[in-house]
């Protein structure tokens, strides 16, 4: 048995000899080779978050101005500022976790990955359930408020909004599962195998 192991290790080590020939190809890597953005899922999440941060900053500035003549304008502006500050704090902790996600032992790294992914997926689902019906509703009812709200068409409009929201929510759920859900399951499975 031990001899067999030594054979395997010997064979494995012998690949070092052929790899020596490859080393020449490594020396040509310049700074630009290492400065490229990583392509893994966590870099993608980080990039998405940067975009979301910019989007929320723009929304925070722009959204209250839709209601600039209303009495609750300053309340709304204050709420949006608080929302951006909370978002910044949450994202800050995400960025710190992502930066060091591959360092630490395999178990630590997988645990961190599961945690970051899990939180991100939950947040995406929550956003999906809140933003989609809200957007569809606001979009539909603001189009012609007086007619829709105070007519017999109100319930029909409500039904259309509900169906449209449901379709969007299902499609976004499929998207989240395909992009992040399967990956989360793989990470969980690997972690279970180790623990």
């Amino acid at each position: 048995m031990k001899e067999e192991d030594e054979d395997l290790i010997g064979l494995w080590k012998s690949s070092d000899q052929s790899e020596k020939k490859m080393e020449a190809t490594v020396s040509h890597f310049g700074e630009s080779y290492f400065q490229k953005q990583g392509k893994d899922i966590f870099q993608r999440i980080r990039r998405n978050m940067v975009v979301e941060l910019w989007a929320s900053a723009v929304a925070a500035i722009g959204f209250p101005f839709i209601f600039k003549d209303d009495p609750f304008f300053w309340w709304l502006t204050g709420l949006m500022v608080i929302a951006v500050i909370v978002t910044l704090r949450i994202y800050g902790s995400y960025f710190r976790s992502i930066r060091q996600i591959h360092e630490g032992s395999i178990i630590e790294s997988l645990t961190k990955k599961k945690d970051v992914l899990g939180k991100y997926i939950r947040r995406m689902h929550l956003t999906n359930y809140i933003i989609v019906p809200l957007s569809v509703g606001v979009g539909y009812f603001r189009a012609d408020t007086d007619i829709v709200l105070f007519s017999e068409h109100f319930y029909i409009a409500l039904a259309i909004c509900a169906v449209t929201s449901a379709v969007f929510i299902i499609l976004i759920r499929i998207y989240i599962q395909a992009l992040y859900g399967k990956y989360y399951e793989q990470v969980t499975e690997m972690l279970n195998r180790l623990e």
Binding site: D40, I41, H102, E103, G104, L110, K113
Partner: peptide, 25 residues
Amino acid sequence: KRYEGKSKLSTWAYRVALNTALTYQ
């Protein structure tokens, strides 16, 4: 840049490389 020398450099390098490979898509 963040390597603090808490473990051997080779141990750290194996960790980073294997962690990257394990969850590479």
